[in-house]
Design a protein around this nucleic acid. Structure first.
Length: 881
RNA sequence: GGGAGUUUAGCUCAGCUGGUUCAGAGCAUCUGCCUUACAAGCAGAGGGUCGAUGGUUCGAAUCCGUCAACUCCCA
């Protein structure tokens, strides 16, 4: 079959993916082999694959494929999470715009039906993209965090933690998303720096008896719309400006409430006016002050961010509209005396990025973190779980673990696991796996209720409260503990994820794993960096700088995209992604494809019966190079240095194999090929494809299949690696010398403007004639020499050059310019003499000879000898000019 | 405000426990080639006082101090 001019990914990718699927290569069942398990960090169902995912999935596929080829029973579990807030927001929006339905018109059950329909429709997009990328996930294991068994597992864990006293219900200051109308955990709030204003507002002062003194105290606030919730004014006890106000009151403007003036060192004398208005319901610090000083809490906001009746004024207005109105009113009354520019930080909702989060007091469910974090911290600190790269994230992890606050897990949403707390009419409640169990529990306490008497908590659980069970429940490890699969696959091997979810997810999975399996969920965590555009900007929808994955694959091929993202991806560092690197990947595929074409051309020209080729220097050399790189790759994989591994494979294939090896063994035009050389070349090619396969699965499989006729089941994807042999160091040195001589001669030819077609006669003055004798043929071909001769004396009228200790004379018909040659040689001479001086200086330094390691001193002596020999060679050459 | 990280060729980055085969790679640039696998290619070349400044050492891109710039995390 005629091979196409260039590699055409579209023609092979779908074909091989289907073949692998048909053969069941991605499927895993427990057996006698050691397992190698990865659980996919579940992308959320609302998403499409972006470049961050692409990097992530590619890394996982590389690890899985390499393990599959290394004797492991590999299991890569795909899935997605339900993304409570984001999905509910999308569904609500869809219902409104497409069907004109408000969520409030629906029952919980009706809403969930719509949500599941939505998930069926859009949730699969991401899987098809992962397939396009070539990922070898076990598609029979797709798991969703709202699957029935998963749902039950989450409820079971909730009940269990509650019974252990690790979950409680209570009123706390929480982060409120007024758009989604739900509480958020601390981790779901993103802070942004903003230019705000500080308003200086006057409050009238009343004396201890309550009589107005006619004086005012000025406070500074960013949030004048919360004034109506003020229940104190606080100043620093050391502040001389306010000391006389002990026992006095302030009158809150707009609502004329009389509130105490309190003293606390919390207040910074230097900030603003040194006087702080205290609004316990709407600021975490004020809340704490309120607790300390026993202040009244007045919540002036509704759950949608509008002012509540408790505000007294501007009731029903949005908080930002109310702010403007309050300012205007204060201004009218002459109470607003100054506006000041001020840089501040505001919290935004992670899932509704345009919505400012409101600190709010609310009754929610919390997980007590202290007991759970302790073992999870130890697991990482003592190296049971290894984080890559290095321990760069260890400090961050430690800090968070040591300072973590209780985790708010209730969300005022429907899309998620409904909290299994059942309330009796009298307000008491029981937490149970089902309403029947709740009734029984009530009964045990002497309260007799029917199901219709009880009301289940309306709220659902934080998505992360389900995804922290992921490495266990994808194997039913919570719902059916100690089943065969969880025993076989858990703990998993590697977790590959972005560093941005270290707290959301990684830390909590470790906690859950230790709590429920008494074992870490994974041995290694590999953090990928953030994918940025080539200007270093984050990729975002707003900037439109995130390339479309499917379009990239169409343009370059999946292998090229994988290559592109991996080659620019040092572990853990942010990577600047540029289409150009995919282009490099495409060119690489093409290069290999063309090497295939060359080798295939030889297929019909094999000279039978000859085996002389086995002694060919190129074969021995490449065998060693291959072994050397195979060993290096194995080391790099151990350290998760995938990008570097790809780089050295790339260089092995392109430079060593294509540029040197193939040129060295290539027969003359239409000449026969030695049988041994041919079969060795095919073997090397297969080895290279095998080494490269995890990175570029499609092209390598295609080429592997093209190289020889294969029997059924002989597929590269499952071809097992063999342990590399030890490379022959002396052959490698000779190979390096050959390359250096060839490049040197080519350079000399170039510099003297000898046309590529003009032949030279080469004379070599060397002490290692045998070395050159065995590479004579390939050397002559590579530098276009018509003859090679050995000499012990200088040849006149030649281009002179020196490589290491050997002298080369290039005899040519072209007119030579001795002055230019002389200049070049003299330049080298000056450099070498300077080098020699520095080495001698070092060696004559007694302290160096005494203190340095013997091998270092020896190395310096060797350098000295080499430099002297080379100087001698150059000096001799110069004499002939 | 607290903590972490980064600063090496035009660009993106390697350089582990200090020793001129460590001053590197890829891309980009320049020169010469449509050589019978590949112009998405081949053969070559140029380019950096390793952020600044002190110190330790026989010797520092590599260790320590200070400073500067940038990035990220936390409050």
């Amino acid at each position: 079959m005629e091979l196409s001019k260039n590699y055409t990914p579209a023609a092979v990718e779908g074909k091989w993916y289907q073949h692998w699927m048909d053969k069941g290569y991605f499927r895993s069942k427990p057996d006698n082999r050691p397992p190698f398990t990865i659980v996919i960090p579940p992308p959320n169902v609302t998403g499409v694959l972006h470049m961050g995912h692409t990097l992530n999935e590619t890394v996982q596929d590389i690890l899985i494929r390499r393990a599959r080829m290394s004797g492991y029973n590999t299991c890569w579990v795909p899935g997605s999470d339900h993304a409570s807030i984001a999905t509910e927001a999308k569904v609500v929006n869809m219902l409104k715009t497409e069907k004109g339905i408000e969520k409030s018109q629906l029952t919980r059950e009706e809403f969930l039906k719509h949500a599941f329909e939505w998930k069926e429709k859009y949730g699969g997009i991401i899987y098809s993209q992962i397939k396009k990328l070539g990922c070898s996930c076990d598609w029979d294991r797709v798991t969703f965090t709202m699957d029935d068994h998963y749902y039950k597992a989450v409820i079971k864990v909730f009940t269990d933690l509650y019974n252990k006293g690790l979950i409680y219900r209570g009123a706390r200051m929480i982060n409120w998303d007024p758009k989604a109308k739900t509480a958020l955990s601390d981790e779901e709030v993103q802070y942004k720096d903003l230019q705000g204003k500080l308003y200086h507002v006057q409050y009238a002062i009343a004396d201890p008896s309550g009589e107005p003194t006619g004086q005012f105290i000025t406070i500074a606030t960013q949030r004048p719309e919360t004034i109506m919730g003020d229940t104190a004014i606080c100043v620093n006890p050391e502040d001389d400006r306010y000391k006389h106000l002990a026992g006095y009151f302030a009158i809150v403007p707009l609502v004329n409430r009389r509130v105490p003036i309190i003293f606390d060192t919390y207040v910074d004398k230097e900030f603003g006016t040194g006087a702080l208005k205290v609004t316990p319901a709407h600021d975490i610090n004020d809340y704490n002050l309120g607790l300390k000083h026993n202040l009244e809490v007045i919540d002036t906001l509704n759950d949608d961010g509008t002012l509540s009746a408790a505000a007294g004024v501007f009731i029903g207005e949005d908080r930002f509209v109310a702010r403007k109105k309050v300012i205007a009113t204060l201004h009218e009354h002459g109470l607003l005396i100054k506006e000041q520019e001020y840089t501040t930080r505001l919290g935004y909702s992670e899932r509704n990025p345009d919505t400012v989060v409101e600190p709010r007091i609310s009754t929610q469910w919390f997980v007590k973190m202290a007991e759970l974090t302790k073992p999870a911290l130890d697991a990482v600190v003592n190296g049971d779980v290894n984080i890559h790269p290095g321990d760069r994230f260890l400090a961050t992890y430690k800090y968070w673990m040591e300072n973590v606050k209780d985790w708010c897990i209730s969300r005022q949403l429907w899309w998620g696991q409904q909290i299994p707390a059942y309330y009796a009419p009298d307000g008491t409640f029981e937490v149970a796996n089902s309403i029947e169990e709740a009734i029984a529990q009530f009964k045990a306490k002497g309260a007799d209720y029917k199901a219709s008497d009880l009301r289940q908590d309306e709220d659902c659980l934080d998505t992360w409260f389900s995804s922290w069970l992921w490495p266990m429940e994808v194997f039913n490890g919570i719902s059916q503990p100690d089943n065969e699969e969880i025993k076989y696959y858990y703990p998993t091997n590697v977790l590959v994820t972005g560093q941005d979810i270290i707290f959301f997810w990684v830390a909590r999975m470790i906690m859950a794993g230790l709590e429920y399996k008494h074992e870490k969920p994974f041995s290694d965590v590999y953090f990928t960096g953030m994918v940025r555009d080539k200007l270093g900007r984050k990729m975002s929808k707003q900037l439109g700088n995130s390339p479309d994955l499917l379009e990239l694959i169409d343009r370059f091929g999946a292998d090229a995209v994988r290559f592109g993202i991996m080659i620019s991806s040092p572990a853990g560092n942010d990577l600047l992604f540029d289409d150009a690197s995919c282009e490099q990947g495409r060119n690489f595929c093409n290069k290999i494809w063309n090497a295939l074409k060359l080798v295939k051309m030889w297929e019909d020209r094999v000279a039978p019966g000859t085996n002389a080729g086995n002694d060919h220097f190129a074969i021995q050399w490449f065998e060693s190079r291959l072994n050397e790189v195979q060993q290096q790759v194995a080391e790099l994989f151990k350290d998760f240095k995938l990008s570097e591994a790809l780089k050295i494979i790339y260089s092995l294939v392109w430079d060593d194999f294509c540029s040197w090896y193939l040129e060295w063994v290539k027969p003359g035009f239409e000449q026969p090929v030695d049988a041994a050389i041919y079969s060795k070349t095919v073997y090397f090619f297969e080895q290279l494809m095998q080494l490269l396969h995890p990175f570029m699965p499609f092209a390598t499989e295609e080429i592997y299949q093209q190289l020889q006729n294969r029997t059924a089941g002989d597929d590269l994807i499952v071809k097992q690696y063999t342990a590399p042999a030890t490379p022959d160091a002396s052959i490698l040195v000779q190979g390096a010398l050959a390359k250096e001589v060839i490049s040197g001669i080519r350079d000399a030819r170039n510099k003297h403007q000898i046309k590529p077609k003009d032949q030279i006669a080469l004379h070599i003055d060397t002490t290692q004639e045998n070395t050159f004798k065995q590479i004579e043929e390939m050397l002559a071909k590579q530098v276009n020499a018509k003859s090679i001769a050995y000499t012990k004396t200088a040849i006149p009228n030649c281009i002179n050059m020196v490589v290491q200790k050997d002298k080369f004379y290039l005899e040519t018909e072209t007119e030579l310019d001795p002055a230019a040659q002389k200049e070049q040689l003299e330049k080298d001479l000056v450099y070498l003499q300077g080098f020699l001086v520095s080495v001698e200086k070092k060696l004559s330094n007694e302290r160096f000879v005494q203190n340095a390691k013997p091998e270092v001193v020896d190395a310096e002596r060797k350098k000295k000898e080499d430099a002297e020999a080379k100087i001698a060679a150059i000096t001799e050459s110069l004499k002939t000019l």
